[in-house]
Design a protein around this nucleic acid. Sequence first.
DNA 1: GTTTGCGTCTCATATAATGGGACACTAATC
DNA 2: GATTAGTGTCCCATTATATGAGACGCAAAC
Lengths: 222, 222
Amino acid sequence: MGNTIGGVGVLDKAVDVLDALEARPLSLAELVAVTGLPRATAHRLATALERHGLVRRDSDGRFMLGTRLLSLGQAAADAWPLATAAASALASLREKTGESVQLFVRDGEERVCIAALQSLHGLRTIVPLGARLPLSAGSAARVLTSADQTAGGWIESVGEREAGVASVSAPVRDASGRVIAAVSVSGPIERTSRQPGKRYGSYVVHAAKEIESEAGLRGVDA
Amino acid sequence: MGNTIGGVGVLDKAVDVLDALEARPLSLAELVAVTGLPRATAHRLATALERHGLVRRDSDGRFMLGTRLLSLGQAAADAWPLATAAASALASLREKTGESVQLFVRDGEERVCIAALQSLHGLRTIVPLGARLPLSAGSAARVLTSADQTAGGWIESVGEREAGVASVSAPVRDASGRVIAAVSVSGPIERTSRQPGKRYGSYVVHAAKEIESEAGLRGVDA
DNA sequence: GTTTGCGTCTCATATAATGGGACACTAATC
DNA sequence: GATTAGTGTCCCATTATATGAGACGCAAAC
């Protein structure tokens, strides 16, 4: 019969298994419960993935993400030289603001966090590396979707994507001026105040410029 | 007919595609050349992987590793709290020695690098995160395979795994004394000398102890 | 002893992957 | 303009492939 049209093939199921294991190690029975796959199928897929190093077993025999994903993830990260170039700028941005900082790029109809450093405060916003967030809310989202220049070069949002969280973002542009990424600072409203842009705006813009020059995207300097 | 026994299923081919893309972005034609798959098949697999975010396209339409691998890789890394715990100890080890430092764990009949920092020298050994190395050569390999205590607590090897490279490794042990990982320092023989253990041994052993206490594996201190 | 849970494996069935080849399109080359 | 060579994408008859209920072996719990 025909070809796979929407989520029925081995590959789709295999990805379901990986998705399930992303949260935590799972025994076969748990894996079956989470994925909804028949026992035999889940077992076959998990062991097949194991052969490729994408899945491994812990000491209790439970399935978990394998070591092969380390190198693949590393390679995927290297595919954005931007993330590497941004490392030092993000570090100093976190130091200056004390809050969590992130670098987002657009990917289809979502945005992806390709670099992040978490605030050192006990109460902090967490955006894990690789997290996919909507392109419809948050200051970084608006930076990535609006092509044109803005007021001070930054955009702020308060409690937009998530209640209690405020953020400020600035665009990273390539040589031709197109927005290719967004740098963000985000934290609990209690600390950032309701005008986070006022407090952190210039820092974020500076970090964006720093990333541009570090990545060799535009002429030198800030 | 029967089930897949050795490398014929969709899954195996899909992994081949990911493997091929690990090195660099590839056009469909190149992908076909590298994997040996028929055009239609390569295209179908690549686009299927794309639907899952494991593969994406660059601006020229070439296939490359996707953003989904970032989060999966991150999750896989989190599965070794050891890697996180080792971060600071490895940083200071690199600072003290000036050479590349790594943390290896055994995985089946190989060893995997689950954390690494490269030397800042121009001439340096590079062991990328996630790299799979043999369990048959190198000081770290011997640390992972020999259960018992050794002379100064470290093991050295000179030009064993790779010509011109010397390394010193020390075991990281759990509460019951079993070796669960190996810390290594490696560099070109010209700098490390032919007795790398003499020079770096104590540093490496100290780093191992530091990792043990940081990870809460043994009692406190060094 | 019996039961309940586990992971693993088999094998007849039919479903889902296959891939040669058609197609549309662009960029050189004639 | 016409031709050739190169892309990526899509179709669809064929059959090789994944499927999954159920059997099995093994522990641990009752």
